[in-house]
Design a binder for these strands. Structure first.
Lengths: 219, 219, 219, 219
DNA sequence: CATGAATGAGCGTTCATTCAT
DNA sequence: GATGAATGAACGCTCATTCAT
């Protein structure tokens, strides 16, 4: 018997072993057949990331399925269409990237230090996850990513953006559209990442330089 | 129709306008005049630019040919493969963009003014040629663009880069790899362009802000 | 819920409505009451009829299952294959149609009146059950219906056919193959039905005209 | 040199051999590359007819192409979609059938003789072209045949229908909708054909019986 | 050199059927 | 017995490229 069934039984305030047996049978008998596996979904996501990294957005669903170790058609149990998969992947990668940036952010203290912390997290996540970074870059220019997905992706970055808004508040870009600051930040991050990847021996230095350049730009 | 072909037609004792039209074409086809291939090549390039802008890199060669007003197969007398076409297009667009940036550059005088001139030219070229900009952005992330093409594209920008190198010589980025500065510049330009396109009423202001941000970043 | 299951639930000392619901299902599933399979079989048959009416014979088993309110795979515990389902459906619809035709047939009396009674019943059944009629029409031309099914379908109509044979006995078609008379009757019925459906205001008149036409044809 | 080119040259009133040579070259050079072959179109039509006869409407385009002796994709140079092919095939078969029925129709004389002539032609065409008849029957119940195609098919039968209208003018079905008479005729023809196919030794007799039955029905 | 029909591998997606739960 | 995820062959259709005309 699985933990889940026991939980359900307990939820109903029932400890009779026989009744629990009924429940087990019941659970199997109604709507509990082989649940969609989170593992498999993740495998598809990862396979798609790798496939996009190596073939671009024209990577075939067949390749993605094969890389994920599932049958051709199974992909469509998890994602309605290729476009749907790509939209979900885009959102997931953006979410992961943002979460990585905000990880262990010092809650208070020097604003500069906070931003540098987030910057470093971000940059190192990108450098450590080259496939994800590359896939994100491709998905970013794809026509298939819907406005809804893009706006959802913006929403996950709200905390991060608040941070940026706070630094902007005192510098030369107070009156510039926020989107300009965001794009500037992205561009600088991209430049920094590429530089670090090309010259990993001085990675830390380049990361710092990138940040300082950003700080000057926004001052 | 040229005088020459009329003469030839008359020589054959034929005055039917349609037949003369045939003759004109025939005369061109047997090399009596230079074939219009340069025109056709350009038409394909432009058609490809538009097609990429509207359909992405997956725009079919059939569509491109149709837009260029030529037959399906004729495209392949001008470009060996689709990839070849895209490589040449990439190089041509980059060349055109660079040339636009360097146009009428004041040969001497204040360095800041020179750079601002190039910056403005660049940004305005991009804003005025949205299809080309969009196509360039797509081609830039394409797997099909060969390293050879990319390095050729770098070469056409040598003059422009020299300019950048001269400003870098005195600021905080003296020791940063030049590629970092280039990527920074690209990122900032992209950010500026998008901002201008979204808010065309303040285009000039955004162009200036972008430049000043770059100047601070590099100082 | 039946009294029986409530008793069982009480026996287990449990009064949660949801859990009792579980138990009811469980009790059924272990054979404490006859499984509702007959109901489900019928639900599938009806669902298939509707599905064929709306999508043709290419209606998917998934759609049929969904319309029947059962799971995808459950369909195959009631029918070995899709073809099997269609064969059974064909036979069932033909049987129902024939039964409808023969309903309340006056046992004796004027032969013409008897036949008109059956004709009317038949035609009105078809007009009142458009989905069934449509499905039957599609199944009739399907390659999947086996000769065995077709001959079984003929057998259920034996009583009806006897009636027809009795009228034939005195007319111009005495020596024609019976199958010709059957096909003639079918063709006329189909023509009558369509005419009635297209002009329902004169349905009764068209039904009569159809019958009289048949009577003349067979005289 | 082909006949066609000579014709064109003559049309232009030009007999100079050299000029004709120009024309040949010209014709090839503009818009005269491998014209869509009528033969191939017909081969596809015939292949589709056979495929539908053996597999029903679910016959795959791949099979049709293979049977037609062309590549998979070539089918789509001749027909935009499978549905398009089926619509054109339906119209063509109906047209052929109608033309067969009306062939060598005696222009004047006994109406009964005229109709019998058409009836015989029709029935014998169907009996001699079993694939076509079968395909037509399948296409007739297909959801993919558009109303436009159906109405076009009606139009080709206008002459035939006029004949029927003339016999109807004096019998019991004067006030019945014409569509009823048409459906009656179809039904009877179908019944007659099947009977003939099943008992070819008495084909002629069955054909006559069918006609007489029709004549009685309509009287 | 221009043309567009021909090619066939490949695409995204569907679906009857199986089977672990 | 019920479930629905899993399967993989097939489907209709597209497309870069070739080549007869």
């Amino acid at each position: 018997m699985t933990q889940d069934t026991t939980k359900i039984a307990t939820f109903f305030g029932c400890h009779s072993p026989h009744l629990i047996d009924c429940l087990v049978t019941y659970c199997y008998s109604v709507g509990m057949a082989r649940p969609k596996s989170e593992d498999k979904r993740n495998a598809i996501m990862e396979a798609a990331t790798r496939a996009i990294a190596s073939q671009g957005l024209s990577a075939s669903t067949a390749l993605i399925a094969k890389e994920a170790g599932i049958a051709n058609g199974s992909l469509f149990t998890y994602f309605e269409t290729k476009t749907d998969l790509f939209n979900q992947l885009y959102l997931e990668l953006k979410t992961e990237m943002t979460a990585a940036a905000m990880k262990d952010l010092p809650e208070s203290g020097d604003l500069r230090k906070q931003v540098f912390h987030a910057w470093s997290n971000w940059i190192y996540w990108a450098v450590s996850n080259p496939y994800k970074r590359y896939a994100l870059r491709q998905l970013n220019v794809s026509d298939g990513i819907t406005p809804a997905t893009r706006s959802a992706a913006d929403k996950v970055a709200v905390e991060f953006n608040d941070l940026i808004k706070r630094i902007r508040a005192h510098g030369s870009l107070q009156t510039a559209p926020f989107s300009f600051v965001g794009a500037l930040l992205n561009g600088l991050a991209e430049a920094t990442i590429v530089t670090m990847v090309n010259d990993p021996d001085n990675a830390e230095k380049h990361c710092k330089t990138g940040f300082e350049t950003f700080w000057r730009a926004i001052s």
